[in-house]
Design a protein around this nucleic acid. Sequence first.
DNA 1: GAAAGCTTTTAGATCGATCTAAATGAACAG
DNA 2: CTGTTCATTTAGATCGATCTAAAAGCTTTC
Lengths: 348, 348
Amino acid sequence: MPFEDKKKSRVTLVDVARRANVSRATASLVIRKSPLVGADTRARVEEAMRELGYVYNMGAARLRAERSHTVGVIVPNLTNPFFAELLSGIEAVIDSAGMVVILANSGDLVERQDMVMRRMREHGVDGVIVCPAAGTEPAFLHQLADWDLPLVQVLRQISEEVDYAGSDYAAGMRQAVDYLASLGHRTIAFAVHGPIHSAYRERVEGFCDAMQSRGLDPNMIVGLPIQIGEIADAAHLLFGEGEQPTAVICFNDVIALGLSAGLYDRGLKVGENFSLIGFDDVTDAEAMRPRLTSVSTGPVTIGGNAARLLLDRLADPIRPPRRVVNETVLHIRQSCGPVAISALQQSR
Amino acid sequence: MPFEDKKKSRVTLVDVARRANVSRATASLVIRKSPLVGADTRARVEEAMRELGYVYNMGAARLRAERSHTVGVIVPNLTNPFFAELLSGIEAVIDSAGMVVILANSGDLVERQDMVMRRMREHGVDGVIVCPAAGTEPAFLHQLADWDLPLVQVLRQISEEVDYAGSDYAAGMRQAVDYLASLGHRTIAFAVHGPIHSAYRERVEGFCDAMQSRGLDPNMIVGLPIQIGEIADAAHLLFGEGEQPTAVICFNDVIALGLSAGLYDRGLKVGENFSLIGFDDVTDAEAMRPRLTSVSTGPVTIGGNAARLLLDRLADPIRPPRRVVNETVLHIRQSCGPVAISALQQSR
DNA sequence: GAAAGCTTTTAGATCGATCTAAATGAACAG
DNA sequence: CTGTTCATTTAGATCGATCTAAAAGCTTTC
């Protein structure tokens, strides 16, 4: 008897076709929801699929159809909540397009990024969303494009010739500076850390431009450690010799959280006699005390934009490159206050 | 002329083989580092691969070899830093085994989990690491195992018959209770939230057991909102009628962060006249003020353990199921202090 | 110098889908 | 009743690797 009830091998399209009394080709059309098949045939095939517990074999399909329904995502760091939120935004959009995300971590190292990118190609991803590691050369991205690998840069823009999704960091900096200036602050520090890349430069330039256009000195830029635990202990770096700042703008919320702790340790009251603005507005900002005033860059939104950009490019590989830059929003909470009288007098 | 210089189609093994004057089969052996090929032949083939810019086609290989070098990871939520760290641990180990991670988010919903699991099967993952959505039935996992899909549960244990990696939450709770008791606290609240699952039950039971074995009342269990922003405003729930707690143990660090803010709002000084212990010890714990005393569960370690468990099972599908449970560590910082005199008197 | 044993190489079938181009059948016009 | 059109269905080739089993070379042994 040709019966084979016990778990033998996997159920394939041939099994389904046989069961439904149609050919392999017709069964294939049913799966792909082609309008070519008749209604009753379709029903019969679907019934057979259900009865046999058929599972589509994407791998086999991809081989022939050159579409893997798979998207690579490369981030420099997973433990930073900002990237986790970005990833979440990407995943949601990719998922709802019926595709899956293959994840990789570059550790912000170009060599690892090379490796990982190669692996993505081997796995035949349809496209890649990458937050380029610091130091990535434009040539690297161009080569990938030459290899016909659809690509989107996210957060950091290396090349103008490749799609990009990010946020308007410079405008965000202007919002922060304007707000502090409106509270009377004139000596404002900028606390930074981390590797240098386009997002870094954009923020620094945004800060400097905003300061200069108000006639303020943009040169109080302070470098801090990467690890959040060490940032607090480095808060004293804000107060070197010369003029003392009455407010600080942070490169990101990690720094803001760290400095908030460090300023507390020094006996300063954030929001009262010292002002602090974060950047990114991660969910923790709401939970700090005083609540952190922060420039929201919307990582989930950026992720979604990047994913949509990639889907669009998949649909039309030769469209010219696009930039999708979302607006930042200044979220005013409690960590800033009017400049203290004493500080004003000090700076005279 | 049979020359085809311009970018035509992708370079395949046949091209490489032709170039190196060997057969397809031999070229394949070289790629797979088989010891069967001679040294000079190997060199010739590798040379040809380099010259042609050959990229291995994993998809084609998988079809024949039934190995996709792909692992599915399903988490309930990406924006929670705890899961991001878990994911980071998984990714590192999977990556170093030469495989890639396909990521999916179940949103802690069983229906979505079903969908996502189906998609993983379609993509032919070699195995899956899943943090089961609250309400997952053991039958669900057993069915997957029946389908010959190697499986590891992480953080939440639904079935004893499936590999599991987690942390000893009950022991962690005991550490927290013991520590607070040693500081003189007798009325200790337990702040919880979120969906009910094994990790939830283990923590609650651990708390109750530890309290009871010291003759303390374990019934002060307080439910709080999910969103971190709302937790602070719910801090008053700790102080209902009846006896007032002098300390609180939190189900996780999200609650700890939220409550710390809420207690601050109520004018309580955490670490002085009220004690607070977190659970998980995420990186932010270090940055809070006062620094958060927290029970470390080591998400990165757990993730690594889960990944290794899966790799082991891939190597030996019939080995009996294992449990890998790592020890928790109480990280003492600044958020707890000896019970205040006034509170002691009040509770008499 | 032929048989045996070993290492190295290969032809051809195969995995499970999709694609192409052609066949089938029904409906309709002349 | 035949030729044409249109909607369905299908056989067979194909994607790019791996696997099996056998062939080809090369030593070694008697």
